[in-house]
Design a protein around this nucleic acid. Sequence first.
DNA 1: TCACGATACTGAACCGGTTCAGTCACCGAC
DNA 2: GTCGGTGACTGAACCGGTTCAGTATCGTGA
Lengths: 343, 343
Amino acid sequence: MGSVMRRPTIMDIAKAAGVSKGAVSYALNGRPGVSETTRERILSIASDLGWAPSNPARALAPGGRVGAIGMVVDRPARSLGIEPFFMQLVSGVETELAAAGIDLMLQVAENIDSELEVYRRWAAERRVDGVIIVDLRVDDPRPEAMGVLPLPAVVLGGPGGTGGLPCLYTDDGASVREVVHYLAALGHRRIVRVAGPEDFVHTRDRTAGFQEAARHAGLAEARTVHADYTGEAGGRTTRRLLAAAEPPTALVYDNDLMALAGLGVASEMGVDVPSQLSIVAWDDSALCRLVRPSLTAISRDVFGHGRIVAGMLNRLLAGERVEDRETPLGELQPRGSTGPLTS
Amino acid sequence: MGSVMRRPTIMDIAKAAGVSKGAVSYALNGRPGVSETTRERILSIASDLGWAPSNPARALAPGGRVGAIGMVVDRPARSLGIEPFFMQLVSGVETELAAAGIDLMLQVAENIDSELEVYRRWAAERRVDGVIIVDLRVDDPRPEAMGVLPLPAVVLGGPGGTGGLPCLYTDDGASVREVVHYLAALGHRRIVRVAGPEDFVHTRDRTAGFQEAARHAGLAEARTVHADYTGEAGGRTTRRLLAAAEPPTALVYDNDLMALAGLGVASEMGVDVPSQLSIVAWDDSALCRLVRPSLTAISRDVFGHGRIVAGMLNRLLAGERVEDRETPLGELQPRGSTGPLTS
DNA sequence: TCACGATACTGAACCGGTTCAGTCACCGAC
DNA sequence: GTCGGTGACTGAACCGGTTCAGTATCGTGA
């Protein structure tokens, strides 16, 4: 008592062991320069003292790393809470980072400009060692900004348009083609896709796959309309579509939140799912299994994507060369919200 | 060209301005010790050079702060993705922190022990300046652990059981009493509450409020059963309750995810909502408005809670004395999922 | 027996800030 | 004219690590 609790430093260890700071550093980092007996003595003292390296000090030393990576999400704040995607991704990312003792900084941004501002600040203030970029856009300004900063980055999305940054990408076009074939086989011809924002690369890829499959199946009336991933927009769009003279018989949504909203609107308008309308969701979260009818969805391992992309960034930070990587295809999970027309 | 891009330091500024490091530091921090003309010259040079303070260096200096706070969430990873609560809370927290230039570290943990391990590591390695503790338990080990570490902390929950830590609390008992009165007024007598885990303080508070209101309204059959906030558990519990000989006519859920699952199960079992069963959710997220029937819910300003609790932590870190604070009561939002029995 | 090289270690510089104790010039008061 | 005080600034220490250039000690081979 009396002495104020203070974090032990390597200097404390050095004094207790009767050696110099440098020797302690070598011992603790498993580097040559100390004898095995000395190393063990130092490690034991360090453990007795409850020593842990000061992260700021490590980061400050020449060539030091901050031991944290950053992620910025800039979808509309309103939808963020419900969007299962990000928390699952975050869980996966952290699982991978935890092993390396790396932390995750999370920021929500209003738009892509404030997102860039966050990256600039993080780089200037040395807050993070690298970042994971999500929701790649068409002509995305972020990859090129990363080149200037410089802030090592890995992109979730692509391929293409990543400005040389390593990326983890998915062939969404293939998944959407499977959905169209599935719906066409059920007899649907008026299929409309309620998509995410037009300037996302994966939206564009899905749209291309959708059009191609529709043309292939001879569905002249298939088309894509855009919304913004929020339940509100999904509901509004669905209401408009179902009120048309010849409403679609099948709707394909780009996330599960809009699909859920669509299901609600159909019910409100007296349109039965699936006998009068089939609904397919993207991003098969638990939501899809909770509602009635349960939602047919394209299921991807978002948690796994997080692990992989974090691993890629880790290796990039370690100075290794990192190749682009493709994820397994999303799998169509047929459930109660799709079926043949029975009118 | 040829010169490698290097972050500018205050030494670079000092050289350019022809003054010492110390003078630059005084100028940049708005402290006395430099003339107004010199200060302006230094600021202008700093801006020209694109200087920003190195966070590790600032943190390392005596009395320096890391400029980051941490938050650990340890609900079951499965439910995390859909639980709107956390992302809304995070948004609110960050909005408040952004103004002070503070970052947020987020960690997901499997259980309360690994959560404590994270706090210990953060404190030992000086990763964060303080933490926000959520989901306070009965006999929670965390407040007391914080006293030892030492890591400044603010609790979202309580009051009581916070071991002296400042807290932001809600009178959940009052809200649940309002719900019971509302349902009783609609004619319901067999009301069951599907609650969160028993060892959460707010679960216990709600249970107490629920029992008191039930006794007051003469509802002998009202009771509480416990689940774990996941949709799966909410659905399973609902199925069991509705299969009983004399099933409840109203269910009150502790979050909206379980309420959503309950709604699905009711539909699956052919129980109409609201004519045969009324459903009330807690945490009024957009989900409640998207499904049909829309869910009556207790609405709270989770985003606002985040702002307030972050502000409290900020002031605590600044050395100010912080008082416990109560949030406004959650408001009952009656929607389509509740009504009188019409059997 | 001596030179040589390897091993084990020390001392100091360095990272980029903050802060404290001085130094110096200048100004007003007596 | 001198004294004291103040404002402006410098130089150096400090935070807690990492790393590099030396140095002392030892064993070994010729």
